[in-house]
Nucleic acid binder design. Structure first.
Length: 418
RNA sequence: GUGGGAGUAGCUCAGCUGGUUAGAGCUCCUGGUUGUGGUCCAGGUGGUCGUGGGUUCGAGUCCCAUCUCUCACCCCA
């Protein structure tokens, strides 16, 4: 048997309804914030992610699905969405068409990680990006969008964790100070931390190893290195969030795994999720457009995992929102089979949801099925009906059955007001 | 990439220390008198016991390998 690839999943009809419900909610939610949808190709040049996300990140260094095509071009299935959106933003010169660009998306991503709860190799994210504003209002808008979306869906136990990692200058100074502090402990650090020490010491702050956490405790904190501008920016973001009644906690050691962030970074977690508890992550990336070859453009955005959202939703009672079949048409004899199909098509044309039999089964079986489908109405057609130009309309709730002249059927069904 | 747990019917699982034709419940299908569902009753479909080796007279059961699922590390959404 050929199975789906490890870490990928089929979404069957009993679940697709829930997916569509979330998709619909997202579209209408984002339009309220005046965001436009953007869709980028499922694969990009590998170079984009190396430059955009950072060559030293785990995502780029060991998780990408990359290959060389027949023309020798190095390509990669999207492992994240900000870099492609930025690429598109630059390519189409969106920045010169309007001062601010608000974009949102929903897409499939691919990372070759070991699957576990809340983590698959093909997964889906939605997110939003604002280009063109360096002001705290943009940060607050992005954070508010993600927080309010989860809140509106009724997801409980939300925690918004906030930090500012400062602008470039600030981070360079901090990086040096951090190295100075860590140097004496160097021999006590794990191998990965020693590598990070050289390439990106900030990531060591994120360690999960107990004895390293001890070392980190007394490490210099980034807040002390923020420039005055960084500080006032961060203060304004916090004050805006307070005004918007969005609760948050500050974690000055939260470091995000992608290299492009500057200033504001944040994460929204929910305790119902298990170890992979991040519903959403994001922040400001004022240098990325420039890094990828565009004009310097400040930007801020977030991305959220749909599978995780679904997990969080499942711990509540989630309903698919799909409509059930409302009418089952049952033909009793060979003579009326084609009539059933014709009638079904006619009723669907009038907006009804109709199911017919494909197995030439018995009346008993078909009523059983109508019952199982929660059909409101069964329409039964026999030879007599064919002769008299009538149909039998059975109400599956009450069991009552009446004979209706076929010409008046639609009127009758409409009056029932499903 | 590392570690723990698990793989028997579509689903949830049983199968004791290796011993005949591998079981249950649910689902699904068909019937319970000529054309009427939900409950009930009866019957039926469906399994190369994840896969490949090995030990043995004999393996779902023991050993090895491998794959997959799952949880955690890691990483992140």
């Amino acid at each position: 048997m050929i199975r789906s690839v490890k870490g990928t999943h089929d979404i069957l009809p009993d679940k697709t309804g829930l997916w569509r419900k979330i998709e619909t909610a997202l579209h209408s939610f984002m339009h309220k914030y005046d965001y436009g949808e953007i869709r980028t190709p499922i694969f990009e040049k590998t170079e984009l992610f190396k430059r955009g996300v950072g060559e030293e990140t785990d995502i780029v260094s060991k998780e990408m699905y990359s290959w060389t095509d027949q023309g020798g071009e190095k390509l990669t299935l999207k492992p994240e969405l900000t870099a492609p959106v930025v690429r598109s933003f630059i390519q189409h010169n969106l920045g010169s068409q309007s001062a601010v660009n608000r974009l949102y998306y929903m897409d499939a991503l691919f990372r070759r990680e070991r699957p576990q709860k809340g983590r698959t190799r093909q997964f889906h994210q939605f997110g939003a990006e604002v280009f063109g504003s360096e002001h705290p209002e943009a940060d607050a808008e992005i954070i508010a969008i993600s927080y309010n979306f989860f809140k509106n869906l009724g997801i409980g136990n939300l925690t918004l964790t906030l930090n500012s990692i400062g602008s470039d200058d600030c981070r360079n100074n901090y990086r040096n100070e951090l190295r100075k502090y860590l140097k004496p402990f160097s021999s006590n650090l794990t191998e990965t931390s020693q590598n990070r020490f050289k390439k990106n010491p900030l990531r060591i702050l994120d360690t999960k190893i107990e004895h390293e956490k001890e070392i980190i405790k007394n490490a210099p904190e980034i807040d002390n290195f923020l420039t005055d501008d960084d500080k006032s920016h961060f203060e304004e973001v916090k004050s805006l969030l307070n005004d918007l009644s969005i609760p948050f906690v500050i974690d000055s050691q939260m470091v995000r795994g992608l290299d492009y962030y500057t200033r504001t970074t944040y994460e929204i977690t929910s305790s119902v999720l298990g170890a992979q508890d991040a519903l959403c992550g994001g922040g400001r990336y004022d240098k990325l457009v420039e890094t990828l070859g565009g004009k310097p453009t400040p930007a801020v955005g977030f991305a959220a995992g749909i599978e995780r959202l679904l997990l969080a939703l499942e711990s509540k009672t989630a309903e698919s929102g799909d409509k059930v079949i409302q009418i089952n048409i049952i033909g009793l004899t060979k003579k009326v089979r084609s009539k059933c199909q014709v009638l079904a098509q006619e009723l669907r044309g009038k907006g009804f949801s109709v199911s017919t039999d494909l197995l030439r089964r018995s009346l008993k079986s078909l009523l059983r099925e109508a019952n199982r489908n929660s059909a409101r109405i069964a329409i039964i057609i026999g030879d007599d009906d064919l002769a008299n130009n009538t149909v039998q309309v059975k109400d599956m709730g009450t069991g009552e059955q009446i004979t209706i002249i076929k010409n008046t059927l639609i009127e009758h069904l409409t009056d029932l007001d499903f």
